[in-house]
Design a protein around this nucleic acid. Structure first.
Length: 577
RNA sequence: GGUUUCGUGGUGUAAUGGAUAGCACAUAAGUUUUCGGCACUUAGAGUUAGGGUUCGAGUCCUUACGAAACCGCCA
């Protein structure tokens, strides 16, 4: 965690202890103490609520807080001065030489050493996991990008991250897929076919069928049914999964591990899990309650159940169907047990909002294996509605008319997609307007931010052309003399960057990066424009080398940070646009 | 019926429980011989409603209203 925030916090923790032991104040809850960054630097650079917390707890009337703090606070080397605001905050001003030191940290790329709080712990982040029954489409993109950016954040903060994709290649949906494909294959051999309502009508299956047909001709028409099913299943899954991987690559989403449901089913892991649950007395034969609402054709049946209601779920869940087959939940439970056995320190799943109802049972399951509420985490993404010509595009699986990732990519490009998808909180439902995202103006902030980077780069390159390269060693007097108010503002924001990374990761909220990024770029553009009105404020002034040096120095730091953010959100950092 | 998420200017969104609720679009008024105007400056306009916790609430708890997603031995 960021050094000086922590230092100041520790100071107040110790200070609180001291005041309590001297009986100046009665006891307080130290966790309430916080250190905040201040966005507008009018009142100070950082602040604490310390005084607000102890104010009512002062029990010794002779105790004068301000005098006492004055005696101690300046032992901290980066505090220049402080004042207490009307409403009780203590506002601190940082010393200039501390700012310069921090900038040096950024310049030397050491600025992220402070936030490696992951300690090489292993994190598994499972996302996308779309069924390999068709091309990847718009609904999956958000989860894909959210998962990818979150993974990058965890890497940034010192975790060892595995990006994992769970391939649902077993079960009846895949059988239906295989059937549909076989029908398309028969169609190619001249037979009339009829795709049923619950089968897959998508035209992509025709392409796959053609491929099989060109390899094997009519070989499969009279083959054994099981052979056909197995072959077509395997072929379809391989083909479609490969397409999914290629499509995801287009928007820079890659995985370390693909785990196949079929392998989970084949292994004995589900039996192992069964034994564990049995030992814990979490399994019994029983009858599920009648579902509310729709009650057509429901009849009570005895089946194998998991006592998830004892672990937080609202009812028990079926592990076996009445015919004795494992349920989907049972397989999925086994898969998560498998992840547990691979010894990760933390599991994160990214699910669409349509699976929210599934969370409690999986959480119950993992609680039964690992009694740690922070071990298994599900983050959900709300739905994305696609807008074109101001209309919501309705997607229907039956009609096979969903908009694919490839369509969107061709229309919009990688960077705007990624930027847009990560710029709002994952739990907010968003509209993805193709016509808007494609626009290259401020309405679309990705270009605004990339332009800031390009501008900064053009300054640095210009400086190189002019052979102004030795702007690295700055002394504090030069710095104090030449730095402007605006520049101090952007510098203070820059040195808070590690803290932002810490916060974004800790709270699993990558969209905070965007907020910060846009603020930073706005200040930069604003400073740039001042050079228009007043030539002496331009970044490069060949008449004033001392001032130019300082500007180049912080601009280089600015580039470093912007580039770092871009790399996390996975967009390009263009030197020119 | 139940679970979950959400409700912020005209529209779309942001705000570890902190100070004057930020930003963009739209609207209105300005700025262009430049290190790239794909930019800058300025103005108006907002926390669904009620109750509670707190020194302090858009944020936490609760009720009502509204929106979306989900809920069966499917996957």
């Amino acid at each position: 965690m960021n050094n000086y925030i922590q230092k100041l916090l520790n100071f107040f923790y110790d200070y609180a202890d001291e005041l309590i032991s001297k009986e100046y104040i009665s006891s307080i809850n130290k966790k309430q103490i916080s250190i905040d960054y201040l966005s507008n630097n009018k009142k100070g650079d950082i602040a604490t609520n310390f005084f607000l917390i102890i104010k009512k707890k002062i029990i010794n009337k002779d105790f004068n807080f301000v005098d006492d703090l004055n005696k101690k606070i300046f032992n901290i080397e980066f505090i220049n001065n402080f004042e207490i605001s009307n409403n009780g905050f203590i506002n601190f001003f940082l010393k200039d030489d501390f700012l310069l030191t921090s900038l040096n940290y950024i310049f030397d790329q050491k600025f992220l050493d402070d936030i490696k709080f992951g300690n090489n712990k292993k994190v598994n982040i499972e996302f996308v996991s779309a069924n390999p029954t068709g091309p990847i489409h718009i609904a999956h993109i958000r989860g894909a990008i959210f998962g990818d950016v979150l993974s990058s954040l965890y890497e940034k903060t010192g975790f060892k991250v595995s990006r994992e994709y769970y391939v649902n290649d077993a079960g009846s949906q895949i059988d239906k897929l295989s059937n549909s494909l076989f029908k398309r294959y028969l169609e190619l051999s001249g037979q009339k076919i009829d795709i049923l309502d619950d089968e897959y009508p998508g035209e992509y299956l025709i392409d796959i069928a053609k491929e099989i047909h060109s390899q094997d001709n009519d070989k499969w028409i009279k083959s054994d049914k099981d052979d056909v099913n197995n072959y077509f299943k395997q072929f379809a899954v391989d083909y479609l999964l490969n397409n999914i991987r290629e499509d995801l690559k287009l928007i820079n989403v890659n995985f370390d591990i693909f785990t196949h449901e079929s392998n989970i089913v084949k292994s004995n892991i589900i039996d192992q899990l069964f034994d564990i649950l049995k030992q814990k007395n979490l399994i019994y034969y029983g009858i599920l309650p009648k579902p509310k609402g729709d009650d057509q054709e429901w009849e009570p049946r005895k089946q194998l159940l998991f006592r998830s209601s004892e672990l937080g779920d609202d009812q028990d869940r079926a592990l076996k169907k009445s015919n004795g087959d494992w349920t989907y939940f049972a397989n999925d439970a086994a898969y998560h047990y498998d992840k547990y056995k691979r010894k990760y320190d933390k599991l994160i799943n990214i699910w669409g909002s349509d699976h929210i109802g599934y969370i409690p049972r999986m959480k119950s399951l993992l609680n039964s294996i690992q009694n740690d509420n922070k071990y298994f985490n599900v983050l959900t993404c709300q739905i994305v509605s696609l807008i074109q010509n101001k209309q919501k595009i309705k997607m229907s699986k039956r009609e096979g008319n969903f908009v694919t990732l490839l369509d969107v990519f061709n229309k919009v490009g990688k960077d705007p997609i990624r930027y847009y998808m990560i710029s709002t909180r994952n739990e907010t439902a968003i509209d993805f307007d193709l016509d808007e995202v494609i626009k290259k103006n401020k309405e679309n902030n990705v270009f605004y931010c990339q332009y800031a980077y390009a501008r900064a780069s053009s300054v640095i390159n210009k400086a190189k052309e002019l052979k102004i390269n030795n702007f690295k060693s700055l002394n504090i007097n030069e710095f104090k003399k030449n730095i402007t108010k605006d520049e101090l503002q952007i510098i203070k924001l820059m040195i808070s960057y590690p803290y932002l990374i810490y916060q974004s990761t800790y709270s699993n909220e990558p969209h905070r990066l965007i907020n910060y990024l846009e603020t930073l770029c706005t200040i930069f553009h604003s400073i740039w424009n001042k050079g228009k009105d007043n030539e002496s404020l331009r970044f490069i002034d060949e008449e004033n080398f001392e001032q130019t040096k300082i500007k180049l120095f912080w601009i280089q730091c600015f580039r470093t940070i912007i580039k770092d953010i871009f790399s996390i959100i996975g967009i390009n950092a263009p030197e020119k646009m």
